[in-house]
């Protein structure tokens, strides 16, 4: 019941974005993909979310052939860098979206959806803002709506693309502690992309350092820091 990424490759036109990235993480782990821009971390995340198709390689997760599943069946909650909230819907409608698009048989009744939305807004501490539109919220609040929306589908996997990239330093610190808390509570496997090593080391169970489309080293923050295996890793961490 773990996440096994095996030699995944992906090319855009001629430019190789992933050169055989491999990674193994136990179920329920909080994994950080850390690397400079252009190292392929967002591409790998988007492949996990089904938003991009890998050229070759395989991913197994929870005994599923992950890459063979259509994005909409993966139940991978994706939190986008720019949040990608539905701007014509209220916060509550945004959060309810994943439940309301379910096929009739699987869709919870309206009252149940309403209850779940309230529960989630409670969890992300936005109880009173359900009727607002995304444009009426601050960056940090939008981020939390995006997270509540992704959690609403009871995801098997939570994928976060630079989740705190657009926020100021103080809010970043608060949110990442809180995100870790939510991760533990929801019991999902989370993968998040960051270029900020302090952030990666502060919240993740496993840090995967990426460079030029490959994962150079995977380990606990302490291990990676104590024993960088490649020249790139030691150089990247020393900055």
């Amino acid at each position: 019941m773990s996440l096994v990424i095996d030699s995944v490759t992906k090319k855009f036109q001629r430019f190789p974005a992933l050169n055989g990235a491999s990674l193994t993480a136990p179920q329920g782990a909080f994994v950080a993909l850390l690397g400079p821009s252009g190292s392929g971390k967002t591409t790998l995340l988007r492949i996990l979310g089904g938003l991009e198709q890998a050229d070759s390689g395989s991913v197994r997760f929870a005994d599923l052939n992950w890459l063979d599943m259509p994005a909409r069946e993966r139940k991978a909650g994706f939190v986008f860098q720019q949040y990608a909230l539905f701007k014509h819907m209220t916060v509550a409608k945004n959060v309810a979206f994943g439940l309301e698009v379910r096929p009739r048989g699987e869709r919870p009744p309206a009252a149940e959806i309403k209850r779940r939305v309230e529960e989630l807004l409670d969890l992300v501490q936005l109880n009173d803002l359900g009727r607002r539109y995304p444009s009426q919220l601050s960056g940090g609040q939008r981020q939390r709506v995006a997270l509540a929306r992704a959690l609403a589908i009871e995801p098997r996997m939570l994928l976060l693309d630079e989740p705190f990239g657009a926020l100021d330093a103080k809010v970043r610190k608060e949110l990442r502690i809180w995100l870790r808390h939510i991760h533990d509570k929801a019991g999902v496997t989370s993968v998040f992309v960051t270029h900020d090593q302090e952030e990666a080391f502060a919240v993740a169970d496993l840090v995967a350092v990426m460079n030029k489309g490959r994962i150079e080293q995977v380990g606990t923050p302490a291990d990676v820091r104590r024993d960088p295996r490649t020249a790139f890793v030691s150089e990247f961490l020393s900055v």
Binding site: G49, G50, L51, A71, R72, E73, R74, K75, A76, G77, F78, F80, Q82, A84, L85, F86, K87, H88, M89, F97, G98, V101, R102, R149, A150, A152, I153
Partner: peptide
């Protein structure tokens, strides 16, 4: 394409994505 991608990752079909996200926008 962000909002469409978000809709798909939340389980919406192509038709649902078009009607609920693309068209209102």
């Amino acid at each position: 394409r962000d909002e469409e991608e978000a809709a798909v990752s939340l389980g919406a079909s192509g038709f649902q994505t078009f009607c609920r996200v693309t068209l209102p926008n």
